[in-house]
């Protein structure tokens, strides 16, 4: 009878194990790297406006709106594009002051290119 007990215990444990183990495999993350070209880029410059204020300026055409949010397409050191949300100030001479969200020296896509997607590796057309 102890043999019966042993067999029951083992099979029971196996059944329990089967119930809880196993699962579907996860979808692998999509790693699509898209290369794209764009018309041009510009560097965010620190300028002094007449009136004495110190601002960081980019060409006005680089700024796009998503509803009420203002954004820029910024290229990282490896050329990857990422959308940056910013607050803009006054416009002057075709450039707009970026009050927050962008550092001087960063590269933005000019003019705003709606075909580009987050993560694209962008090279400016020559």
């Amino acid at each position: 009878m102890t043999y019966r007990v042993f067999v029951m215990a083992v099979s029971f444990c196996l059944v329990l194990g089967a119930c809880h183990g196993g699962g579907e495999s996860l979808p692998s993350a999509a790693h699509d790297v898209v290369r794209a070209e764009t018309d041009g880029v510009a560097e965010a410059l620190q300028v002094v406006r007449p009136g004495g204020e110190d601002v960081i300026a980019v060409p006005s055409s680089a700024v796009f709106m998503r509803g009420q949010l203002e954004g820029l397409q910024v290229l990282g050191p490896d050329g990857a594009m990422s959308v940056r949300w910013v607050r803009t100030g006054s416009e002057m001479d075709g450039t707009v002051a970026v009050l927050s969200g962008l550092d001087a020296g960063e590269i933005v896509v000019v003019p705003y290119d709606p075909s580009l997607e987050e993560g694209d590796l962008v090279t400016p057309k020559q």
Partner: peptide
């Protein structure tokens, strides 16, 4: 830090 700076780090 400004809102946009925070947004940048978070993103």
């Amino acid at each position: 830090s400004t809102l946009e700076e925070t947004a940048r780090a978070t993103k």
